[in-house]
Structures are given as structure tokens and as C-alpha cells.
Design a protein around this nucleic acid. Structure first.
Lengths: 154, 154
DNA sequence: TGAATGTCGTTGACGGCGCAACGATCTCGT
DNA sequence: ACGAGATCGTTGCGCCGTCAACGACATTCA
């Protein structure tokens, strides 16, 4: 009906640079984690959010929300981590449908051993390239996109 | 060895905002493409790079590089698009190992029909939220990360 | 020329992830 | 109290992508 508002040249270049940079970055981090720790990025993030949770335990639903995944994604990630011994499943006290996942001692140790390498990779491939002003802008831009999309009022 | 240089608070916030925003954005665009056109984001990008190529044809290897995927990824994407009739395979004249993929008329039409919706989604979820200064910064940041990672000197 | 090495595109095996459906359980209105 | 509907976590299914190996062909170098 109304005509298409195509992207301008500046916007096209920004879009390509952002897409390509992001893809390369995620790939690099994923490989680093896989090689050094044998876990995927999602698995690693599950460990992180669990380590930051009170009593290092969380309901499956909250895990899924925290890592922006689905419930089935959380189920499979926790299953993998449980098989490795980093995480333990527990029944929920107040909701008999519920399941909680708890970070084990071995899981905490694994995370402590893995985090430095991951942080180093994030620095090498991202923050070491950016000025403090870049970091501020990145946060602002990311927050705008995230906040817009987190409300279903698309 | 040497101690870990953890991320500062500003950097952590920027990292989370960037990661979460990016993930939500990619998910939204992927769903939009899947719903409106029945193609994945990779398939769509293959159509785009083919449409921009001379004579709308490219070697498999160049397609893989252009969309930052692997050769097998390109093979499977082109196979899907060929099955749909948007793309046609041809033998390479000067290299008998080679295969070229060529955008068909139907593929060009499909792309023309799909692009407006995709561009609109990119606008809605990204550029409409950003100031012109944001766009400039985004391009600069993305380019830094991309250029750093595209040379294997990591 | 001929052999070693590299590159091209494809394929099989494998794993990750989302969707939809499921049984179990909770919640709410009447 | 009780039935309708929502929500919980799991699982079967299918798609998508990478990795490793392959045969075909190119290139290089003695």
C-alpha cells in the first residue's frame, strides 16, 4: 500500500557491519568455549545465571527466560549439564509441577575454571577494540533494541 | 599465570545489552521471514547476495564467504532454494570442479516480494529506535569487530 | 610429464534448537 | 467444591548448521 522505506546507504553499511561482526564474534566465542571447556554458549550461560542465583538454584522456567531461550532449550541444556555433573535437578517445594536446577560444587569449579578464558576471548574480540565511548554507545543501542522487543507490543 | 582482567560494570552491562538485544532481534527477524516468506535468514541472504552479483550468479565458494557460512551450509541452502525454484545450478566454465548458482526469475520475484517486509521489520525493531548518531556508532563498532575477526590473526 | 599437494562442492553423521503435543498440576470463577 | 483453562517441564519430530571424509579436478614443482 504505502511505498517501501528502504535503508539508506549509512543504514545499510551499519546493518551489514553489525550483522557480520556479530556473527563472527558469536562463532569465535562458541568455538573457544567448545574447545576449552566442551560446553556450548547456552550451556555456559546457564551455568552463569545459576551461579548468580540465590542458593545457586532456579526453576526451569526462570532459566529459560534468563538466557532468552525456550523451555525445551532449558530442559536439554540442563540435561546435558546434569549428565556432566555440573548441575543437579531437584523438585520444587511449593509447586509439584516444578523442577529446580542447582549448581553443584563441580559445576561451580568448572565455571571458575572456564570463565577466565571466556572473558579473555570477549576482551580480545570485542572490548579491546573499543573505546570507552564505544562501550557506552553499545550499551545504549543494545538496551534500546532489547527493551523494545521484550514487550510483546511489537 | 597473570591475573584475570574481568569486565568492569559498564562493560558487563554493555555486553548483556548487546547480547540480549541481538538475540531478540535475530529471533524476531527469523520469525518474520519464516512466517511471511517461508525461508530462513540464511536462505534470504543467499538470495540477496545472488541478486547483487553480476549476472545474478556466483560460485558456491563465494556464496559461502559472502554469507559468512561454510561450504556445506551454502550447499544445503542452495539445495533448498533450488528445490523451491528460486535458484538454478550451473557448471562452471573455467573450473570443472566448480558449481555456480544463479537466481531464477521466480527467485528474483520472490525476493522482490519478500524484501519490503524484511526491511520493514529491520526498521521497526532496530533503526526506528536509533538516532543517526547511533547508526554511525553501530557501523563503527561492527566494523571494528568484523575487521578484527576476518583476518585469522587471532 | 608426473606426483604431491591444495581446492572445490557434496554428503553422512551428529548435535542444537524450536514447535507442538502431552500428562501433571495449579488457579480461578462460579 | 468443581470444572475450565492456564502453566509447568518433558519429549518426538523435523529443520538447520558444522565437522570430517570423500572423489573430482587444479596447481605446483621437480
Amino acid at each position: 500500500m504505502n511505498e517501501v522505506r528502504w535503508l539508506g546507504k549509512e543504514e545499510q553499511q551499519a546493518w551489514r557491519a553489525y550483522l557480520d561482526g556479530t556473527r563472527l564474534l558469536i562463532q569465535a566465542l562458541d568455538r573457544q568455549l567448545e574447545a576449552d571447556a566442551g560446553v556450548s554458549m547456552l550451556d555456559y550461560e546457564v551455568l552463569v545465571v545459576l551461579s548468580e542465583a540465590p542458593e545457586r538454584r532456579m526453576r526451569m522456567r526462570d532459566i529459560a527466560d534468563a538466557v532468552l531461550s525456550t523451555r525445551s532449550g532449558a530442559t536439554r541444556a540442563v540435561t546435558r549439564l546434569e549428565r556432566l555433573g555440573w548441575v543437579r535437578r531437584t523438585e520444587c517445594a511449593d509447586d509439584r509441577r516444578g523442577t529446580e536446577a542447582e549448581l553443584t560444587e563441580a559445576g561451580a569449579a568448572k565455571l571458575a575454571a572456564t570463565a577466565p578464558g571466556h572473558v579473555a576471548a570477549v576482551r580480545t574480540h570485542m572490548f579491546d577494540l573499543l573505546t570507552p565511548a564505544d562501550v557506552t554507545h553499545l550499551r545504549s543501542i543494545g538496551a534500546k533494541v532489547r527493551d523494545h522487543l521484550q514487550r510483546p507490543a511489537s
